[in-house]
């Protein structure tokens, strides 16, 4: 269920631009549902994923 893709921002500038990448690393969840900037601890990333998943559920 989980896909993790390392994207080299210089090579894929259009995608980086679309996701407003201004600093790296930036983790974009589900094609822009959320963004996490910096190398954050596991718990912080998990919290963001949880928000994205629960948001979708409540729709």
């Amino acid at each position: 269920m989980v896909q993790a893709e390392m994207v080299e921002a210089m090579e894929f500038q259009e995608l980086s631009y679309r996701h407003h990448v201004s600093g790296v690393p930036q983790t974009t969840i589900n094609d822009g549902a959320a963004h996490v900037v910096g190398a954050v601890p596991e718990g912080n990333l998990l919290a963001e994923i949880m928000k994205v998943v629960s948001k979708k559920k409540s729709k």
Binding site: E5, V24, T27
Partner: peptide, 15 residues
């Protein structure tokens, strides 16, 4: 993650 019902895509932008 074991209970995830929908796909999650994490894209880590790096240079």
């Amino acid at each position: 993650l074991a209970d995830l019902k929908e796909p999650v895509l994490l894209q880590v932008f790096v240079t």
